[in-house]
Amino acid sequence: MEFRLFKKAIYFFLILLYSNNCSHAPAINETYDFSLVNTINIDKIADYPKRPGSGQIMEDNLSFIFMKNGFNVSQIMSNNTVINLNDEGENNLSLSCTLTEYTDRETILIPYRVEDRGSIETTITQSSESNGDDQNAIATTSTTTTTDGGSIQESRKLEYTQARVGMILKLKDEKTGLLVWTHSYWYSGIELSSTAQICARNSVGLISKLFNN
């Protein structure tokens, strides 16, 4: 009984470990001291192919969300956006963003499909036989497990459009060139503008955690 519980605990631990490894958490240089950062300079963001203005929209979204998160944002150096963190800090970081996706007319098919994921049914039958003397009663337990693999039924298909925005962000120390934080993220939605904003919000939220703002 205890061995079974131990086995279950090990499976649970392995699943947890696997799911953590598969999550889309950012990569961080653990040795870097983020409390010594003076400013973050947001590099010009290149437009996504055939999407003029997409880079500027994402840059504006990032500035907006940084401000919403309580950071001081300025745009004095040749139109570049600068996030001011700590006046006593010695290091400056540059934030670069590459748009990996910026589409609002991606066509997704909705098949009219019925998915039966199947089921596992376990029946436990218990019976006891007694010859009248309670001390000599015989108990029998039998277990039957039925597995149904499920099925998919599909009919005609319909089309609709969906927005999808993806990006890769990198924070680099300007003096040493050391990459201190990087993250890739994508999000989908019905409207392109709100999807881009959610992408920016998520990324800035993660950057904010580095500076405990």
Binding site: R113, V114, E115, D116, Q162, S188, G189, I190
Partner: peptide, 18 residues
């Protein structure tokens, strides 16, 4: 008519988010 259509649930989720 078809409560198990995952694609329809997805579309509903996107609309609620919007």
């Amino acid at each position: 008519d078809n409560p198990k259509n995952a694609q329809v649930h997805k579309l509903i989720a996107l609309l609620y988010e919007a």
